[in-house]
Simulated assay, not measured.
Amino acid sequence: MIKAIKAFSDNYIWAIEIDNKYIIVDPGEANPVINFVGDGEIEAILITHMHNDHIGGVAELKEKYSPKVYGPIETSDLNDVDVKDGDEFEVLGKVFSVILTNGHTKEHVSYVMDENLFCGDSLFLAGCGRVFTRDYKASFDGLQRLKELPDNTKVYAAHEYSLSNLEFAKTVIDNEDLNKEYERVKKLREEDKITLPSTMGLEKKINPFLLADCVEEFKNFRDKKDNA
């Protein structure tokens, strides 16, 4: 079972529950996780990248629950295990595969478990993370790796950016799938409900950053979004 823990104004910390134990993804704050888990056990924490809204709660959670922390080399001060592209590891009987999805940060990674993708800030519903490294090829290449995942893969992004992403997407692409998703998300947000997870199959139809044919087109979309 995978549940969202809300943090800050628009972050989602993902909690994977297996046999009454938890794997926590990107805990930017500790208190929401503690309130959610209570006296339960946190077996592991997975970190996608170094930004504080994804790691700010790790130290406190380590002290309270003693989980094993997996993360890229850029968070090695917090990690028990440094992970890199192509690595696999097992937690609570589940195998996690690591995919390098950098560009947002230098060593950003994503995790795949069964048909579930935990992609931090590399991929959002109808969007992608800002390319703070300015390495647009790395960001494009990372998304191409994610694009190879099966269509039924559920996409657990780390932020509730769906509506603004769809509004931008409608300015650069036009199809019926995009229009339907916009109406779905708009209604959910009016009710203050979560819009995630998405699926890779849907993202391949509505996400301009996945539909971009080359790095140049990807950068063009990214520049337009950043300057909107």
Rank of each mutant, 00 (worst) to 15 (best):
I173G: 02
K187V: 12
N102P: 00
Y70P: 08
E148M: 12
K154A: 02
L117I: 01
T101R: 09
L166Q: 04
Y12A: 03
S110N: 06
T195F: 01
N35Q: 13
I73K: 12
K68T: 15
T153L: 03
G120T: 12
K84Q: 15
S110F: 04
G38I: 09
N207T: 00
N175V: 02
E190W: 00
Q144W: 01
D114W: 02
A44D: 14
V112G: 08
F140H: 02
A7I: 07
V58G: 09
M1K: 14
S198M: 00
A15L: 13
Q144S: 08
Q144P: 01
M200P: 04
D174A: 11
F89V: 05
E60F: 03
T101C: 10
D82A: 12
N152D: 12
K225T: 08
A169N: 03
G71E: 09
N152P: 00
N20V: 06
V81H: 12
E43S: 14
H49Q: 10
N35G: 15
P27H: 07
R189V: 15
N207A: 04
K219W: 08
D85H: 15
K180R: 15
G93H: 07
Y22N: 07
G56E: 03
E41W: 04
L178C: 00
I45W: 11
K187A: 14
N207L: 02
V81E: 15
D39H: 13
T101V: 15
L149V: 06
S110A: 15
E29A: 14
L146R: 05
S198F: 00
E148W: 00
R184F: 08
C214M: 03
I42V: 13
A15G: 11
Y136H: 13
V33D: 07
K224I: 09
Y156C: 01
G120Q: 12
A138P: 05
F209R: 01
A212V: 06
A15P: 11
Y182E: 06
D114V: 06
G38A: 10
T105A: 02
D192C: 03
L143I: 05
N35F: 04
N152W: 01
Y70N: 09
A126R: 02
I47H: 07
D192F: 05
N52Q: 13
C119R: 06
G129D: 10
D135M: 08
S66W: 00
I16E: 10
L92S: 06
S162L: 01
E43T: 14
V98P: 08
V155S: 00
E63W: 06
D85E: 15
E60R: 09
E60A: 14
F8P: 00
C119A: 11
L123N: 00
K219M: 11
L188P: 07
D80V: 04
M113S: 12
E181T: 10
K186N: 13
A44M: 13
G103Y: 12
R134E: 13
D85F: 05
R145P: 02
T105E: 14
D174Q: 09
V215D: 02
